[in-house]
Nucleic acid binder design. Structure first.
Lengths: 210, 210, 210, 210
DNA sequence: GTATAAACGAGACGGTACGTCAGGTCTTTCT
DNA sequence: AGAAAGACCTGACGTACCGTCTCGTTTATAC
């Protein structure tokens, strides 16, 4: 968003927050109805009951709108919470992420990450507002897992993160239609990866592993 | 591609294969020069020295052209070869895939998979021509790894595939700029995942693991 | 009009003359309905059932369209015919011109000449296609009037033209609403210019006249 | 102009006359720099360092501003003064008008009269503030010319005005680029109209003249 | 050898959307 | 209460491409 929240007292008529909101809503509605590739600034403006300039005053193009709309909607999904062990912390948060991706969140985030492959601004935004916060928490979880003796020392937390969440995004993004993001799948991934991460492999695994 | 190679003897002037080739070449050149989102049928036709109809006679839209152009270029990259153990087979092929993704192949495949998130035809094509062949070979490798006693029984080969290749695609597609597809990264992933997959976890790991 | 009628062999699909015609018709209709200043390429295209590009392919802007439309309509009005004397030739053609200006022709030509005050291309077009042909004929009429002994020698035909037609355009263009382009007015102008205003013509003239 | 100079005691902050002046100045400057058709309220406001509302509070649109700016500038040009004879009075004032039209005044008035062809308000304003005062004086000059025996009786002063000034406006407004508003031209017009074109003036006139 | 058929390049066609500009209005803060 | 600033909705601008449709031409097979 261009909006600079400087403390300078605003002169002139202030931005209409209702307009901003109705633009974001319209973008999501239209994306749902006609698909992301058929989105147009013109269409969003019409649906939002707003002039095109009102959109261009706030964003540079439709995808910037979509980014704000989607991320606002998506960020509250699937937080990472800590449990007793790193294994349980990750298993729980991966399950909730998979659940989110099975529903609306996946429908919204997939096109966004897709578009990010050719749109540097969008890529940067997704990184800063979606990926990085999650990586940050994961690093903490890994750190404590090592401290507590649950995990081997010398682990690169980012590699752990890739190893655990990579499979989920693989099924989400790399075309393979028979691949559900089921809980069973998550459990298998966790077992596979933790089996190798734990100092005492084979011990304390998830029941599904037996 | 629409081209149906029926045995019926063609009447009229035959398709000009040189035109087909120059269209594909032009598409890749332009993608490289102006980017994938700035590609247009018109531009490709002009660059290829070809009428627009000649393109539309062969493909439905630019992305179908791109798909053919990219996949033709990409399929020969990173074959999966078998080594003595499943671990070594995967490690070798993952290394060569990562190498390919670090170069031109990644530059071409990323936009394609990105676009596949909102283009069903493209998604289907990527699945059939890129993903499925690799999954098929991987299943075989896993099967033989179990047969030979290297791997635990009851493994779902597709989950193994996700667990191993997921991290690579994660770094390729999910924005996180400090994440290189280095050989060290591949080795770590292999170690993490195989440490959990092996019947006797903790034994016979890659030297890097010690 | 951009249309270059060169002998160059036409390549590609030929221009649709029906489209050209319907554009010109639509322009005149809209000018009549909403006025010349409310004309827009968009409006004309919509009315003509034509894409905007089809208009821009032929003309540079609305006023160029209007110019073609108006001049095509107007040029056939009020030809200059020769009579026995120059006086009668001019009187007749001035009358018919005044009549034309009282009706549709005036309605069309006034905005055109108005716009020509700030539009160099239009000015040039009006000159070449409307004014110049009339001046040319007038010069001939004056020349023969002199030959035949009806008119004084040494006359500048263009000044004569200005003296005769100027008053008509004065009433047409310079705002003065009580001034009709009546036949009586024409006759008075002809009499004044051909016969002089002075009670004793030829006396007291400016030295320049000698 | 909207400005109503009623005696009503002004309430609130009084109009800033400096703003009014700088708007008019900005309008003329911009007209000179970018041309009359590229004038915009926005541009004038920016140049004058004034809000758009400040302009809209005083005038209805740009052309109303231009009208005020131009007429204020132009009205003082080329007054009609009386000389010994009507012929000399007109000759002198026509010369000074032609001179004005050759310079800045022509550059300003031409677009204004041009625009008046499609703008009723402007037409009315030009009539009242430019044309009518000149016609009024001319009527007086003609009246006295008749009284004094210089001019024939029964003349319609407005027709005389058209006959004398029409040729000037003809050259000014009707595109004919080789036509200068020279003094020689003025003299010829005066001679033609006052003295007649015919070698033997008074002969062969139209019946209406008797 | 002459139809017949289809592909070819060129480019016009009716459209959609782009991103920009200006119109004229409205709302806020400052003077 | 006027002025500046600037956001608002509207509507048109001129451009780029879309995917379709003639054109006249070329290159094959079929008669």
């Amino acid at each position: 968003m261009k909006n600079n929240n400087t403390d300078r007292k605003a002169r002139g008529r202030p931005r209409d927050e209702a307009a901003t909101a109705s633009i974001l809503r319209a973008a999501l509605e239209l994306a749902d109805e006609v698909g992301f590739d058929a989105l147009s600034v013109e269409g969003v403006a019409a649906r939002a009951g707003v002039g095109k300039t009102t959109i261009y005053r706030r964003w540079a193009n439709v995808w910037a709108v979509v980014m704000d709309a989607v991320l606002a909607d998506v960020v509250r999904a699937a937080p990472i919470e800590e449990h007793a062990t790193a294994r349980e912390s990750f298993r729980a948060s991966m399950r909730s992420l998979a659940k989110a991706y099975r529903g609306k969140t996946g429908k919204l985030l997939r096109p966004l990450i897709g578009r990010a492959q050719i749109d540097a601004d969008l890529r940067q935004a997704v990184r800063a507002r979606w990926v990085e916060p999650r990586r940050r928490i994961a690093r903490e979880v890994v750190r404590r897992g090592v401290e507590r003796g649950e995990l081997r020392e010398g682990l690169d937390a980012d590699v752990v993160f890739d190893a655990l969440y990579g499979p989920i995004y693989h099924r989400l993004l790399v075309p393979y239609d028979d691949a559900p993001l089921s809980e069973a799948f998550i459990d298998q991934v966790v077992d596979h990866v933790f089996g190798g991460l734990e100092r005492n492999p084979g011990g304390g695994g998830h029941p599904a592993r037996r």
